[in-house]
Design a protein around this nucleic acid. Structure first.
Length: 370
DNA sequence: TATCCGTGGTC
DNA sequence: TGACCAAGGAT
């Protein structure tokens, strides 16, 4: 290590904080000029939503949650079903279940006041190493080493780390710790993440606009775009199944509730078959309908990509008279009873995006067939 | 340690 | 179209 590089490390935080003071983004969960400190509830809520999720996707959800539940105490008193409903579309629904669980724990164990230490925060549901460090630094001004995907990318470039992720994680964390200053820890953390989000991006980084480009070993070596390296991921398998869209003459749709654990746990669904690898015949799929009816197979299946598999969902549809037919009704995959929901009240249901697609497909079909 | 867990955008 | 990626955590 040369003397110049050591000197650069000392200057790194200083330069980055100056850049942040001018270039830092205005985001709904950041304290505004004139406020002393961010609101811990706002910081926590935003960090939970931002896990593996883009700022753009989070902003409308963050605002909606604050309007509905302005304090952690009010969120704790909400029903899990309401929280899931409002979270619907944002993905990774375990976050919403942990959000609710955590709010209850903060009220019960800490009198509704978030603990300020990284170690205490880490004990709470849904709060891991990244989120505990981020809250401690941003909400409580404590020195904490905040390492997210942005920081990993920035640091791997500054130090030209050739070892691929995730093997490089311990080394990247060590470098991040070296760079983290004792003061303005929260601003520094957000500055690093802003830098990663706006300048030191994964694709086509803007090195000409980078305030710390003179410290960047990857830039000096001409390998910025190649870092960080990552181990190749396995190809996603394909699964398929069917959904059964039932529309009543008085405008109700039949829904079920998913199991308490696993994929899309506790969310609402259009009842259907299991999602298995391989392709079953249409006739075979129809045998799994919740009841006998004149099912019509929609022309186009619903396609959806989950984290670890591709899904092709055949959609069967039927219209019937809810009162006259007094069905019949089978069970959802969650082993619960199916229930009717008015079409204009679907926003009150915790329907994940894949099921929103199914509903839209079914409604389009119903509209076309009169 | 490896796998599971959503979604939308980009190239 | 498909692969990759984004403010990770739980098991």
């Amino acid at each position: 290590m040369t003397g110049r590089e050591i000197g650069n490390r000392d200057r790194h935080a200083e330069i980055l904080l100056s850049w942040y003071d001018v270039q830092g983004r205005t985001l709904p969960w950041r304290y505004k000029k004139g406020d002393n400190q961010a609101n811990p509830y706002h910081v926590w809520l935003s960090e939970m939503m931002l896990q593996q999720t883009t700022v753009k996707a989070v902003i409308p959800y963050f605002k909606k949650f604050l309007e509905l539940w302005p304090t952690v105490g009010m969120l704790a008193e909400a029903s899990l079903d309401d929280v899931l409903t409002q979270w619907a579309g944002l993905g990774y629904y375990a976050r919403a279940r942990n959000l609710h669980k955590c709010a209850i724990a903060v009220v019960k164990d800490y009198g509704g006041i978030f603990p300020a230490s990284e170690a205490e925060l880490l004990k709470l549901p849904g709060i891991g190493p990244y989120t505990s460090a981020a809250i401690a630094a941003i909400a409580f001004g404590q020195r904490a080493v905040v390492v997210d995907g942005n920081v990993e990318r920035v640091v791997s470039r500054i130090f030209r780390v050739e070892l691929p992720l995730p093997d490089s994680r311990p080394a990247l964390r060590g470098y991040a710790a070296e760079l983290t200053p004792p003061n303005r820890s929260g601003d520094y953390a957000q500055a690093m993440m802003d830098l990663g989000a706006v300048v030191c991006t994964s694709r086509s980084p803007s090195c000409l606009l980078c305030p710390v480009s003179c410290h960047c070993q990857a830039l000096a070596s001409g390998v910025v775009a190649e870092l960080p390296r990552r181990k190749k991921k396995a190809a996603k398998p394909r699964r398929s199944g069917a959904c059964f869209f039932v529309l009543s003459s008085d405008g109700h749709i039949l829904l079920g509730k998913r199991p308490d654990k696993g994929l899309l746990a506790k969310m609402a669904e259009v009842p259907g078959t299991e999602w298995a690898e391989g392709t079953r015949s249409i006739a075979e799929l129809e045998e799994d309908a919740p009841f006998q009816a004149s099912w019509v197979l929609l022309e186009k299946p619903v396609l959806h990509v989950f984290t670890h598999f591709h899904l092709t969902l055949q959609v069967f549809a039927v219209s019937l008279n809810r009162k006259k037919d007094e069905i019949i009704i089978g069970q959802s995959s969650g082993n619960g009873k199916l229930y009717w929901v008015q079409q204009d009240r679907l926003a009150g249901q915790p329907l994940p995006s894949v099921m929103q697609k199914v509903v839209v497909a079914g409604q389009e079909h119903a509209g076309m067939s009169g």
